[in-house]
């Protein structure tokens, strides 16, 4: 007995079509291939001979696929050194994705390089005549991502928050979301992607204001398709590679480890 569901479980190497240095530490690669990915899904990115890591997909328009990553670990630092024409393996897409209805008003909260998948969601939702508010946050002006890209989308308002006030609101992007949710025109839904502390704040706020919300949760992943169990979360035992990474707020709020701890490749707990 075989099935047609597992064509995407062997990595295939592709040549990098273009490299863009987004900030000092953030790089985007474009590949001349579509994996038919939806916003919020992830792909396992393989650097042959080194390692394979999960990454959110920054765009897949049916012709090209883009990833945007922060060079923070050994593998991503080595990936950042690659040039146009170098080979990178892609396996996926995996996981759940953001969901919306045509013509909805969506608020998208992006922290750090979470701006990349949020842009993918925004660009697809804009095609469905959704009106969008992108709330982009970063430590400082030079770490802000995808602002120009968001601004070019139809029906999109962009607001910015930086920790040091070097651009836009001085403080957290969640403070801007709070003002929006407490105002007269509440969005139909909030989407969020970024550091887990930001996600907890978004989750609490949306729960309190009774606004539906979808957030992207990250855990250590190996297989990407629900076999190894490395990304299961307490106490539900669900696998975030198949039941996530995008989860509805009601589900996120039943994950007791959300905002508290995560597990490493050995399954050992680490506080957030």
């Amino acid at each position: 007995m075989t099935c047609g569901c597992c064509h995407n479980r062997l990595p295939v190497t592709h040549r990098i079509a273009s490299v863009k240095r987004e900030t000092e530490q953030v790089t985007s690669f474009t590949f001349a291939v579509s994996l038919g990915a939806k916003p919020g899904q992830f792909v396992m990115v393989w650097l042959p001979g080194v390692d394979e890591v999960p990454m959110s997909i920054a765009n897949d328009d049916g012709k090209q696929l883009q990833i945007t990553f922060f060079a923070v670990g050994d593998t991503t630092k080595k990936l950042a050194l690659l040039k146009k024409g170098d080979l990178v393996g892609l396996r996926g897409p995996f996981g759940t994705h953001y969901e919306w209805k045509p013509k909805q008003h969506l608020s998208l909260v992006a922290g750090g390089y979470g701006a990349a998948p949020m842009f993918f969601a925004a660009s697809e939702a804009a095609k469905d005549q959704c009106t969008l508010t992108a709330i982009v946050g970063a430590r400082s002006k030079e770490h802000l991502l995808y602002l120009d890209a968001f601004a070019k989308l139809k029906g999109t308002t962009v607001s910015v928050a930086t920790d040091d006030g070097s651009q836009g609101h001085k403080g957290y992007n969640v403070e801007l979301l709070s003002a929006l949710l407490k105002g007269k025109k509440k969005p139909d839904q909030v989407f969020a992607c970024g550091p887990e502390r930001m996600l907890v704040a978004v989750s609490d706020l949306c729960h309190e204001q009774k606004v539906p919300c979808q957030i992207s949760l990250e855990r250590y992943m190996k297989c990407g398709y629900g076999l190894c169990g490395n990304c299961t979360v307490d106490p539900l035992g669900i696998r975030l590679c198949t039941d996530g990474p995008v989860v509805k707020n009601e589900l996120a709020r039943t994950i007791t480890e959300f905002g508290k701890y995560h597990r490493d490749h050995l399954g050992k707990k680490h506080s957030l």
Partner: peptide
């Protein structure tokens, strides 16, 4: 504690799966 292997550790086709997770455990 025993460390496993780096990724890719699990790959598959409709007919077979290969794994070399390397028995990691805390």
């Amino acid at each position: 504690e025993h460390k496993g292997h780096p990724n890719p550790t699990i790959i598959s086709t409709p007919h077979w799966t290969l794994n070399a997770v390397g028995v990691p455990d805390a």
